[in-house]
Design a protein around this nucleic acid. Structure first.
Lengths: 343, 343
DNA sequence: GAACGTTCTGGGAGCGCTCCCAGGTTTTGC
DNA sequence: GCAAAACCTGGGAGCGCTCCCAGAACGTTC
């Protein structure tokens, strides 16, 4: 009612559990039971409590619940990346969407955290500070010790993408190896003989797994696996790598690019060199980003279901939190070939 | 050491403040002072506490701090969107990056929340439950009452993008009107006479503001502003809208598309209709997404700094939380024209 | 040396909830 | 009919921290 000046700190005099109890004519315990959906509450009491909650606009204080209870009803998604580049990545967005979808309906909140350099101790402190029940970690470079540290601290942890330096920590990943192998086999089946690849960085498992799959696919067909160039998951690096391959093997007639985003750059280089796609050089990407279908020509690629990755990670974590036993230590998600015009 | 089976609930017996106090030979109060960087602690005591913290691997319990203190050191980013499509949006990723960048160094956590339909009450409850100090809201459709509700509850709130239905709640937005006007003027300056536009949905301010800017730019040059088609920020809708415009005005020689993502679809339609870009039809987009530069032809567009948007929203919120007064009720971020090949 | 500040320290009352326990009231079983 | 089991309820002790208050230790000033 009063329009009193209430400068910086506008207090929100939220109703407390006790007031709800008084209004409903029951005890705190009973209100607590109603809120948490526990049994052993008469429907009369339950009704009265709901009424009181509605009238007072009560919403339970999360901090108090976390402190008093044991779980925080909150999990963290940690993006472990030096730069913040990753956030622009559709991969991240997809995982996030999946995590969120899987969490829908559960009363669990998501805290997003990024590990900045130097800040790592802060991050571990926070995560172990009882504020979250479990952690999802994605986008690991090299031998990041974070998942190990968290797991050792007893915090349930699931990694997205095979971690290079955290043996024993559960993870979920797309089946990069078999996806890449399928791409290689497909190119072989088209009659291509001189097949190169543009691989991701050597310090990321996703890059290495796809490279391995490509190698396996080619070597089964008794083709050379020497045409390897490396990029860093940017269009520019893909363009440079493509030029390198073209330079080393002018007779190259196909290339498997370990990420659509790099394939975009490769396409530009091929165009600049007067190579027709797919006539002169067939191109297969990986990921099936939205840009794959709008590329010129539309990109044949290996689809990975990133959203499913997020969902699966979350499912795995929640299952562990629920106390399920004998959960699989790691999970591989199938990929699928999407044939468009570039190969 | 022990490899004991420690099934579901591995307890993390984190050190407590009291234990640190005992180890350091001081009182709880003093430890608390050290942790919070308060004055009036002798350097001897401070040193002893730091030692003890290091030795015990102590990390303060966030829930307890929030409960006992007044602030949560945590803000929420709420994405208000029916579907989860928004997460795939580079806009979202950019804002998130900005928010995160602005938060760097501050000891403030970010909770990411999505308002699912029906879930809205839960969301408001949670946010008002004292778990966060303030809220950032983005991606509002129509007359979403959420910001109003939060603001009325006394929770500091900043909206990203002009909200249609929340007058009075502070917001930050790109200067869509002037950006669009600049695009229109540029097309006029190229000598184009029959200029259409593909606008965003009517229930989003961003779509309407850009449409208004385009209209203003054209009408100042005494050109017709009847060639308006609507899309929904997808390439497909852009393609359909472009076909519609072409159908209504075969002599169309330029189009301002209110989002790069729709421009992509428009480009495809133009190509399919045998129109050369920019020779027959000049195209200007909006946003300057990464795909704008890799489009064929590279897209001339109006650049908005989405990351800056996130940063500014965060700055505004933090300033309010810090008790600063007389803060601007809304902020407009300048846009910039990026000239490439499509116009 | 009495009176005052300034710097430092510890004690302890909550913050708002959960969860254990004790007890009361019904229903069930034979 | 009476014991046992199931249901329902309230009381109250914490969860781990912050922050207020009282007081100790040390000047500094008249």
């Amino acid at each position: 009612m009063t329009d009193a000046v209430d400068p910086p700190k506008a207090r929100r005099p939220n109703a407390r559990l006790e007031e709800v109890a008084r209004a409903a004519g029951v005890s705190k315990s009973t209100v607590s039971r109603v809120i948490n959906g526990e049994p052993y509450v008469s429907s009369k009491a339950r009704e009265a409590v709901h009424q009181a909650i509605g009238k007072l606009g009560y919403s339970p204080n999360q901090a108090a619940r976390t402190l008093a209870g044991s779980r925080a009803n909150c999990i963290a998604l940690v993006v472990s990346e030096q730069g913040s580049r990753v956030l622009a990545d559709p991969f991240f967005a997809g995982v996030l969407r999946g995590v969120h979808a899987e969490l829908a309906g559960k009363r669990v909140q998501l805290v997003l955290m990024m590990s900045k350099e130097g800040d790592e101790q802060d991050l571990v402190n926070y995560l172990c500070g009882g504020h979250v029940d479990g952690v999802l970690v994605i986008s690991l470079h090299g031998q990041d010790p974070l998942p190990r540290t968290l797991a050792d601290a007893g915090l349930p942890t699931v990694v997205g993408g095979r971690p290079l330096g955290a043996g024993g920590v559960p993870y979920v990943d797309s089946d990069n190896f078999n996806g890449a192998m399928e791409a290689a086999r497909y190119l072989v089946s088209l009659g291509r003989k001189r097949i190169g690849t543009i691989a991701g960085p050597r310090d990321m498992a996703v890059g290495m797994d796809r490279l391995s799959g490509w190698k396996r696919g080619l070597s089964q067909a008794r083709l050379d696996t020497d045409l390897v160039a490396y990029g860093d998951f940017t269009p520019e690096s893909g363009a440079v790598a493509m030029a390198d391959l073209l330079n080393r093997a002018p007779d190259l007639d196909a290339v498997f690019v370990g990420a659509d985003i790099m394939a975009l750059g490769a396409l530009q280089t091929l165009h600049a060199h007067g190579k027709r796609v797919p006539d002169d050089v067939a191109v297969v990407g990986f990921d099936d980003l939205m840009i794959a279908s709008t590329a010129v020509p539309p990109l044949t690629t290996i689809r990975q279901d990133v959203e499913q990755l997020g969902r699966t990670m979350t499912w795995r974590l929640m299952a562990e939190l629920a106390g399920e036993e004998n959960l699989p230590p790691f999970l591989l998600l199938p990929t699928a070939m999407v044939t468009r015009s570039s190969a």
